[in-house]
Structure formats: structure tokens, C-alpha cells
Design a protein around this nucleic acid. Structure first.
Lengths: 244, 244
DNA sequence: CGTTAGTTTGATGGTCCTCAAGCACTGTGG
DNA sequence: CCACAGTGCTTGAGGACCATCAAACTAACG
């Protein structure tokens, strides 16, 4: 009951719901089955049926879809505190792959654990479903970005969203954050070529907005970056909307 | 108990779950509060909190997000049998707008009705959550399309997906379907300009693949269209995966 | 010290956007 | 009945944005 208090998931949920001791205990139990995965090797392959979901406690993962022509589209990144394959485990369908970007630690959650937890603490269930719904809103925002923003704004928006998500688990601030992604990851996520990603980053850097270098993102001018991206974080933090 | 048997939603769910009389009765009750909306006037505005969800029984709707520069991105279309705002009603957050494309008929479903129905018939609950999960898979596929497919493949994929969805409620076949969308709708959905949509449609028509004209889509060569789009409908019909 | 992964920059060209104009059809009011 | 506006479709010309190809550079690593 002590360790889980500092897990990223607990931290994230705590920002939205005051968790009782009972709920913390349930979360504790969900964190018991700890596992590690090495960078680069898929955890779940496209089409495979998943038996378990995971709560990411350290490291980064991306979920993506591969196309016949070899290109890939990264749908979302998971950072500490995020669920992996939550929907797959509830509905037994998984239609994309998960790849750890660095070595990761995660807690395995079996379907039964999850259903049991939901039955015991409806508030926790709501909180977790809220997190899932937030993930979905991010996918929608991602869609809008790729469909209707040019490369600069897309990149700016992406970095700001990432910063917000990381800040929620204490891994970033408005000044910047650590980020293990390569420019290829950015390209596959943003629907750009890696070459163009590089040029976009250079431009943002030269305009004094943000620097992405050596695994670290430094935000120089948060306001102008928000302007460029038309970043409106309402879809991320609807604090107080829930469980009032 | 007789009318609802032929509602599009019942038809859609029946393709995946054999519905009992009890479940049909619950569905019947959910269809009681009938409402109509006129084309072009938003049902729900961005940011508004929704008190109800809707089951679309006739007509088409699109859900979209507007950007500051006036461009819009259509996230999804709803056709008869689809839910509108299901997530918003469960989680009290709505982050996009809904616009009827033609005059529509829909059944209003209050949160309480839904929760009651879920409590009464877990199978129906699962079926409805499956439908929601399918919607989400479509958004992901949409994301992949915009990020990694060129305009032709994007259009082909979109039309094929739409055809499949409509076929499920008896409103289309491999030969074609009625479709009230304008080329502007297509443009806003596919992340293209209306001008380019027109050119793409011309090309598909001249290549003998598909004709979009006068509110009707005629598929001339289904196989070649599937080829061009790299269309893999697994994400749409996972028949038998569920509730075996 | 060669290999590999990732970054950087240049040159060239294609896809798709923007601007512009014309056409067909519908509904409306004089 | 006709002028007119509104909506949607169609086509052309020019150009922006971004992809592709190519090559050099750095850092890490065995």
C-alpha cells in the first residue's frame, strides 16, 4: 500500500479523483504481476488476441499499424501511467501492434483482475474508463492534426501534448522533458518523412520555439508554440468534469 | 416488440449476437423517445456537455472538429444503426460537434436508460460496447488512411468502408449504395481539398473502378478497388470473436 | 576500426493546394 | 416566365509543401 502511491498511474488518476485507501489497495493488487520487455521487440502483434493488458510504469511504447507497402503509422505513444491494450482485453480484439521504444517495466493485468476491480470500486472503474476515453480523444486530435495541420503546427502540437501528458505524471514541465523518440518515430507518428521531420525541427529551433536534441525537448517559448499549434488542452484535462 | 426488430441498430447487432426476446424488449424501450433534426443545423456543439445519446434510425450525420483557421476535419460519419455521442453520455465530455447531413430521425437515449439496460442484459451491454469499440477502430483506420495513404487509396478505402457499414444494415451491397454526401464532405473527411476530391473521383471513374454521382456510389470493380485501397475489413467484422 | 543507428543537408520532382472561372441545377421573388 | 442567387460540380494554371534520392557526418558499440 505504500509503493503504489507513487506509481505513475496512481499519480495520474489522483489528479482527477481523490482515491480512498480501498481504491489504493485495489490499484496495488493490479500492480503485482510485474514484467519487463526489451526495446524494439513487439509485445503484441497485429491481429493477435491479447489475454492481458498492461500498466506501463517506466519507459515508452508506441502502438502502430503496418501497411502492405511497408510504411507504418504510429497511432499513439504510451508513457508511464498509461494503459496498453485496455480495449483489447475487454473486447478480445487487438488490431494494432505494440513496440517498446526503450526497455520498459509494466504490470500485467488479467481480464479477471480488471473486472473484479471494477466490481469492487465503481469510482476506480470510472477513473480508468475516463483515462481510456482521454486516450481516444487524443487519437481524434491526432487525426485532426494529420488531416488539417501543416508539418510545423503538427510537430508543435505533438510536442505540447506530449509535454502535458508527461507533466501529469511528474516527468516534464512547460520548460521541457526527456524524450527517447527518434526522428523516425516522429515521422511515423506525424505522417511525414524522416527527412522532413528533421527540417521542421531545425526550423522550430531556429525560430527559438523548441529544441529537440539528445533525447531531450527544451521548450523555449511556450506561448508562441501554443499559438503556432493552436493547442487547446481542454481535451486532455477536464478536471472537475468527472466525479464531482 | 415488433417494430424494433427492423430497426437498423437491431439489424446491426443481430449480425453479431442472437438477441433474445428480453433483449429485444430492452432495445424497444430504448427506441421510444423519437426525435427529428433538420439537415445542416448542429445537434451538439463542440464543448457542450451532452445529456443524451442518440440511436440514428434514418439519415446521415457527421461528427467533426473545427479549427481556428476555419478548416474542419470530419472524424466520422454516422449512418442508420449507429450511436451518436455514446461516449459523451457515459463520461459527460463531448469534444466535437454533430451535424445532420440530411434530415434525420433518431431515438434519444438518456444516461439512466442506458445504465438500466446494461444492468438488465449484460449481453446487450457487451454488444453495444462492441459497436463502440468498432467505431474507435474505424477512427484509427481513418488516421492510418490520412497519414499513410495517397488520395486515391484514401478515397477507395473510404468508399469501401462505407459500403461495408451500410451493407450491414441492408442499405448497400458490393455493387454500390446511396450516399447523400457532397464532395465537400469527402474533402473534409479525407483531409483533401474539394477540388482534389473531384479530380480523384474522376480518375477512379475513368479507370472503371467506382462512380460517385447524383447521390449514388456505383462500384464497378470491387476487387481492383480493394487492391488499390489495401482494404482489409477485419477491423469491421470480427464475427464470431465475440460472445461465442 | 568497421558497422550500425541516427541526424543533417542538398537537389529534384510529384502530389496536392489555391486561385479562378465556368457550368448545371434548384428554388425564390419580381 | 424570367432574372437571380445559392449550391454543388468541373476544369485549368501555377505554385507550395513535402517526398524521395543521395551523401556526408556523428556517436555508440563490439
Amino acid at each position: 500500500m505504500t509503493s503504489v502511491k507513487h506509481s505513475p498511474l496512481t499519480r495520474k488518476l489522483s489528479a482527477f479523483v481523490a482515491l480512498s485507501d480501498v481504491e489504493l489497495a485495489v490499484l496495488e493488487r493490479m500492480h503485482q504481476r510485474r514484467r519487463t520487455f526489451v526495446a524494439g521487440r513487439d509485445m503484441v502483434h497485429q491481429g493477435q488476441t491479447a489475454q492481458a493488458a498492461y500498466i506501463l510504469s517506466s519507459g515508452w511504447v508506441c502502438s502502430y499499424k503496418l501497411q502492405a507497402d511497408g510504411t507504418r503509422q504510429i497511432v499513439d505513444f504510451q508513457v508511464p501511467g498509461d494503459f496498453l491494450g485496455l480495449r483489447s482485453v475487454l473486447l478480445r480484439t487487438s488490431d494494432h501492434s505494440f513496440e517498446p521504444i526503450v526497455d520498459i517495466e509494466a504490470a500485467e493485468v488479467m481480464t479477471s483482475d480488471l473486472l473484479e476491480a471494477f466490481a469492487q470500486t465503481p469510482r476506480l472503474a470510472t477513473a480508468i474508463l475516463w483515462a481510456a476515453s482521454r486516450d481516444e480523444a487524443m487519437v481524434v486530435e491526432h487525426l485532426v492534426g494529420i488531416g488539417r495541420r501543416d508539418a510545423d503546427a503538427r510537430m508543435a502540437h505533438f510536442l505540447l501534448e506530449l509535454g502535458s501528458r508527461l507533466a501529469l505524471v511528474g516527468m516534464g514541465s512547460k520548460q521541457g522533458f526527456d524524450c527517447p523518440l527518434t526522428q523516425y518515430h516522429l515521422a511515423d507518428a506525424l505522417g511525414l518523412s524522416a527527412v522532413h521531420v528533421n527540417r521542421v525541427l531545425r526550423q522550430l529551433r531556429e525560430h527559438g520555439l523548441v529544441t529537440f536534441r539528445d533525447g531531450h525537448v527544451t521548450i523555449h517559448d511556450h506561448d508562441r508554440l501554443v499559438d503556432l499549434a493552436e493547442f487547446d488542452p481542454t481535451y486532455l484535462d477536464q478536471i472537475g468534469q468527472l466525479l464531482k
